[in-house]
Design a protein around this nucleic acid. Structure first.
Lengths: 201, 201
DNA sequence: CCAGCCCTACCGACCGGTAGGTCGTTGCAT
DNA sequence: ATGCAACGACCTACCGGTCGGTAGGGCTGG
């Protein structure tokens, strides 16, 4: 059956993406050579090039796959939540766990290699990222209109949200003192309620 | 006078650090070659190596200089402020402006190349960073004890602070819609008071 | 006052190694 | 027998780094 072999080819392709992502996530894009990736795949360089178009296009594929995972595990899980504040809370929690649990090295690569791609490829990934920012801005605006959020600049608030969440990849260690669930709870609490108690304002 | 020529040598050294920092900030450490840096300095590669020890040590010097600038322009300016909340406010504001105004490309390099250095050099820079985290944690704890901050996990709150502030290097553009002073004001407000208004809790 | 020296800053040429990428060929499963 | 997956060999360009050498300004002794 041709579909059978086609599926197997796709499977192999995904394996290669994942292996490459593992290396690039650990060492960085520029510091990871095609030879390294080929070795890790059990292929020669020429053999690897049978599956990929170029190193840059490989990175683009990895990032697009990472955005797929993010949209499936975070965005699509929360966008139907009616209450905007509850939507933000769930979104932050799911996004934090996506970063801390290393299911998707591709997501970390998206975060770190934010300026590595150039030209059309860069624009394409940036557009997918921007959709997330717009989603946050709109949710914050909606919350404000409903009297459930203060009248903050929605762009600043969206990037405050993103900073708290996405910076985590730089410092979080699985074997650290704080559990990722505690981080998620703490960050949500701080984002929604702030540091200063009501009675001290 | 021998001090005169020694000063001139130091000056030249700093020029080279700054030129190298400009390139590395724009293209990334791995993507910037020694040849690129030598060209930008108006030197040959061999000539450049008269001034630097190795590419890795050059990066270490750049990062240490960046930490010097940070400590001078942020930490030392705020650590004498008596009120802990006021200290956090001033610290966040100064740190944000340090990131947005590109005075110090070295600071951006410290933020982006967080895993590039290895071994002793890595440990040295990490130790200087950790001092900042400890300072924030202590200030937050102090505020909590004074009843001026809620009883949050100080580590989580410190990294929330840092995420909001340091993530900015990834998205801020000088010619963007939001002024950096507005970002600083908005971020401080969000960190201290949260998104949700008191009456909606 | 100046000849000689020395040191700093710098250069051209070169090192072994590796980068990303290509080519023609081959083994194997259908 | 056909077509895909994979191979070894190879390409050019460049990597970080080193070598012996030199131009020239400042300091010294006579």
């Amino acid at each position: 059956m041709s579909t059978r072999t086609a599926d197997e080819a796709k499977q192999r392709h995904r394996e290669i993406l994942e292996t490459a992502a593992r290396l690039i996530c650990a060492r960085g894009y520029e510091a990871t050579s095609i030879q390294d990736i080929a070795d890790a795949c059990g292929l020669t360089k020429a053999g690897l090039y049978h599956h990929i178009e170029s190193k840059e296009h490989l990175l683009l594929e990895i990032m697009n796959y990472g955005m797929d995972v993010f949209e499936e595990q975070v965005l699509s899980q929360v966008e139907s939540i009616a209450d905007p504040v509850e939507r933000l809370r769930a979104c932050m929690e799911k996004n934090i766990l996506l970063v801390t649990r290393g299911w998707s090295k591709e997501v970390t690569i998206i975060l770190h290699e934010h300026a590595t791609l150039q030209g059309r490829a860069r624009n394409q990934i940036d557009a997918r990222k921007k959709k997330y920012v717009r989603f946050l801005e709109k949710t914050i605006t909606e919350a404000t209109k409903a009297g459930k959020a203060r009248a903050v600049n929605p762009t600043v608030a969206a990037f405050a949200f993103l900073g708290m969440v996405l910076w985590i990849y730089k410092w979080y260690r699985k074997d650290g003192a704080i559990a990722d669930t505690a981080i998620a709870r703490g960050m949500v609490d701080l984002f929604l309620h702030g540091l200063v108690p009501v009675e001290a304002r």
